[in-house]
Each structure stands twice: as structure tokens, then as C-alpha cells.
């Protein structure tokens, strides 16, 4: 992947982060400012167009081996993620005391909901990381 890809991808990620940050501030001060709607109206399509452009640069730079490598990483990553997810279900059975202590320490259902979302997603995120490492080890 070339310098252009990383430059444009970096700018797009920073722009998306910045826009997300601004929206987080605006949403805390109702009513949502009119100029906020204006900025979102211009910036969101621009960011989407930018991300599609990044995707096009990436696709142009990928040959069949790169695609095979990426596919291997994604497939193995998902399988590893699912295995980690299954294993994480054993934690309450193997460590009931620690589990109940953890549940008891939470501040109500809102906390439980957020932690449930994060801990449900975490094995798959880890799986994707392990998938990338696996692909790198296999084809290095």
C-alpha cells in the first residue's frame, strides 16, 4: 500500500474522529446548533466519498495474493473470534465467585448493558487481530 493510501486514509480517519467529537459536544447542548446540521450535511457525504476513494486506491493496489492473504486473515479471525466468544462463556462456570463479585460491583442495568456489549464484541476484535497475525506468520 502506497503513501497516497496511508495519507488519504489517515486524513479520513482524523476527519471522521473530529466530526464525531464535534457532534458529541453539540448533542450535549440542546438544541442541536443549526451550523452543526450544516457541517454534518457537508462533512458526512465528503467523508463517505473519501472513504470510498481510499477503498478504490486499496483495491487497485491489491493483487490476487494480497486478496488471498486478506481472506485468510478474515476467515481465520472470525473462527478465532467465535472460539474466544465460546470460551468466554465458560468464565461464569469456572470462576462463579469472581463472576458474581463482578456482577455485584456493577452500577445497575445501564452498566451491565454497556459491559455486555463490549465483552460480547471483544473476542471478535481480538480474533481479527489474531487473524492478521496468523496471515503475517503464514505468508511472511
Amino acid at each position: 500500500m502506497g503513501v497516497r493510501f496511508w495519507s488519504v486514509a489517515g486524513i479520513m480517519v482524523l476527519a471522521a474522529g473530529l466530526l464525531g467529537g464535534f457532534n458529541m459536544v453539540w448533542i450535549r447542548h440542546p438544541p442541536f446548533p443549526v451550523y452543526g446540521y450544516g457541517v454534518d450535511l457537508v462533512a458526512i457525504p465528503a467523508i463517505i466519498a473519501g472513504l470510498l476513494y481510499v477503498r478504490r486506491i486499496k483495491a487497485a493496489a491489491m493483487d490476487e495474493f494480497m486478496i488471498a492473504k486478506k481472506r485468510f486473515a478474515a476467515q481465520s479471525g472470525f473462527v478465532i473470534g467465535f472460539a474466544l466468544f465460546a470460551v468466554s462463556g465458560l468464565v461464569p462456570l469456572m470462576f462463579p465467585q469472581a463472576y458474581h463479585q463482578f456482577i455485584g460491583g456493577m452500577d445497575g442495568a445501564d452498566d451491565g448493558f454497556i459491559i455486555g456489549r463490549v465483552s460480547g464484541m471483544a473476542p471478535f476484535v481480538l480474533g481479527l487481530v489474531f487473524g492478521q497475525i496468523g496471515a503475517w506468520l503464514k505468508y511472511r
Binding site: 493496489a61 493483487d63 490476487e64 495474493f65 494480497m66
Partner: peptide, 16 residues
């Protein structure tokens, strides 16, 4: 193709 592709074929890690 990329140089990595040629390397992977040469080392037998990837069949074209």
C-alpha cells in the same frame, strides 16, 4: 503483481 506475490510463489507459500 506485487513483489510479495512473486516471493510467495517462489518460496512455495502461494500457488498462483
Amino acid at each position: 503483481v506485487s513483489r510479495q506475490t512473486v516471493n510467495a510463489i517462489e518460496t512455495g507459500k502461494y500457488d498462483p
